[in-house]
Design a protein around this nucleic acid. Structure first.
Length: 514
RNA sequence: GACCCGGUAGCUCAGUUGGCAGAGCAACUGACUUUUAAUCAGUAGGUCGUGGGUUCGAGCCCCACCCGGGUCACCA
């Protein structure tokens, strides 16, 4: 197929851009420049101009400092012998003003080859227009990158009095926004802000743990046995070893091996993988933070989680409030602590410990909880709690002391052998943290694994596998240890007010196109 | 996996009872030297998600499928 035929197949809009590209090359201009050295950013330019204005140090004609900026054209208004444009440079938006008698005839005519979404460099003095906007009076400009495909910028109206921004048209289609995240980011500054916040949250989590003396480590992503959670793994195969491998579903068992080895405070920020459905709060590939601290128990870890959450709110968000849609959730310590069994007892107006398995099952059926086949006592309690109590846990809440059957890696509760020393921390109705006083008795651990294996035999393919090497590690002796896992994506959702996990993951999993 | 909603121009969307496929913005041509959703005049732009079917005639009705969103289920 010849070049012309390819061009003929393109839509009108794309064809026009190719034609401009040809015209640019014919003029001897470089459509894909090699580098550019700006002297300022749009935000800094506006700030400097306003400062000079306040200090009454503007030059003749009300001109401020001479700046050189690079950015993407996001708006274009052609007035004949002058043009107003807006560029965006990652630090904000700034207006450029081109006049034919300032830039010169040849340079001005070349402006007709520019389009919205091109990258350009421009320089000149700053001034304030009659309508009051800080603007660069362009003296010269250069093309940095010709865009061959227009970005779907909406038109933005800014209300002069309220400063409220209204976007007309724009880029709404969710599917295209996720598939072409580059375009979503290019067009939506608020989407860029979400991911900047995400990055700062992760930096502050690291800084917080580093300052507490934790060591950041890396453990295997490819594992011969998977464990540490109840989930279905992704399965792959190593050719040279001719061996089945699994993508990790959790980091837990490897990190606790390190505690055995004497690395007494460790953490890992990792991608974990679970071969499960997608939802508003589930992506098959997600980011987990896990940490383990020798000599501590789950009470100590509740204190640490409280301090960690406050640290991130203080350093990244700047206020101790979480905003979810219309709701404002104040965050203050200590967080509420709610026994799983006592919370459920309260909701049922009945002491759950006094109820028989049959009574629990009857209750679950009364609330039309599905999929109760083969559910044991622990699962029934958990299901009922999830149905009746969990949705109301908006303020940060530690749900504590889960039934043993549900927690094969947690230590028995020191005061009640039916329970474990465990907490799950909820904010905005979503589980963010999960933690235990870690089970370090290798004999008990083997029994728990065997109970899991029995559940597996019975058809529960998410029950955990027996990990003999892990038992061997525990036999060498793991000190008392508290450990915590945190769903980083969900935490970022809470901090940025996003209601879908896809909106805090740059490239969420989608079915492949075509 | 089940149910609901959606897929029409580059973008945002209309499309009546089945009867020539539409608007706004963007694009293109022209006018305009402080505009800012610039304005004014004109032009062009379509695999109506895909494949079948019914019909003289399908964007619209029927069947199957693909993709996405939401709810539920599943899910430490």
């Amino acid at each position: 197929m010849s070049e012309n035929q390819i061009t003929d197949d393109l839509s009108q809009v794309l064809r026009h851009r190719r034609e401009k590209l040809e015209a640019i090359v014919e003029r001897g201009m470089e459509p894909f420049a090699y580098n550019f050295s700006p002297t300022s950013s749009s935000a800094a330019t506006i700030k400097a101009f306003e400062a000079a204005e306040a200090a009454e140090s503007l030059g003749e004609n009300g001109h401020g400092t001479h700046v050189k900026l690079g950015g993407r054209i996001v708006g274009w208004r052609d007035m004949g012998r002058s043009v107003f444009a807006h560029i965006e440079d990652g630090h904000g938006r700034l207006q450029l003003y081109f006049r034919k008698n300032v830039v010169g005839e040849e340079s001005f005519e070349a402006l007709s080859l520019l389009d919205v979404s091109d990258w350009i460099g421009a320089e000149g003095p700053t001034f304030r227009t009659q309508t009051g906007e800080v603007t660069v009076q362009v003296e010269s400009w250069t093309l940095l990158t010709k865009s061959l495909r227009p970005l779907p910028f909406g038109k933005v109206e800014t209300d002069q009095e309220s400063g409220e921004r209204t976007v007309y048209g724009g880029f709404q289609d969710q599917e295209t926004r996720y598939r072409q995240r580059y375009a979503d980011l290019a067009v939506h500054p608020d989407v860029r802000d979400v991911f900047r916040t995400r990055s700062r949250v992760i930096s502050e989590l690291r800084r917080f743990l580093d300052e507490q003396g934790f060591l950041e480590v890396e453990t295997p992503v490819l594992q011969p046995l998977y464990g540490g959670a109840s989930a279905t793994p992704f399965v792959t195969h190593h050719e040279a070893l001719d061996q089945t491998m699994y993508l990790r579903i959790a980091d837990e068992l490897y990190l606790k091996r390190l505690i055995v080895g004497g690395l007494d405070r460790v953490y890992e920020i990792s991608k974990d993988f679970r071969n499960e459905g997608l939802s508003r709060v589930h992506n098959p590939e997600f980011t987990m933070l896990e940490w383990y601290q020798a000599f501590s128990d789950y009470e100590d870890q509740m204190d640490l989680v409280e301090r960690m959450v406050l640290h991130v709110l203080d350093t990244v968000i700047g206020e101790r409030v979480i905003r979810l849609g219309e709701q404002e959730i104040p965050v203050s310590v200590p967080f509420r602590r709610l026994g799983l069994v006592s919370g459920l007892s309260e909701a049922l107006h009945q002491d759950v410990h006094e109820m028989s398995d049959e009574e629990l099952r009857a209750k679950a059926e009364e609330f039309e909880i599905p999929d109760l086949d083969g559910a044991g006592r622990g699962k029934l309690i958990d299901k009922l709690f999830g149905e009746l109590v969990e949705p109301g846990l908006m303020e940060p809440t530690f749900v504590i002391d889960h039934p043993k059957e549900l927690s094969p890696l947690a230590k028995s509760h020191r005061g009640d052998p039916r329970l474990t020393e465990r907490f799950e921390m909820y904010i905005g109705g979503a589980e963010i943290f999960n933690a235990f006083s870690e089970l370090n008795d290798p004999i008990d651990q083997r029994e728990r694994f065997e109970a899991q294996a029995a559940m597996r035999e019975a058809g529960d393919n998410e029950a955990q596998q027996i990990d003999d090497d892990y038992i061997r590690a525990l036999e060498y002796g793991m000190p008392p240890t508290g450990g915590v896992g945190m769903g980083v994506d969900r935490f970022v959702m809470m901090l940025t007010g996003q209601t879908s996990i896809r909106d805090v993951i740059l490239f969420p999993i989608l079915r492949t196109e075509d």
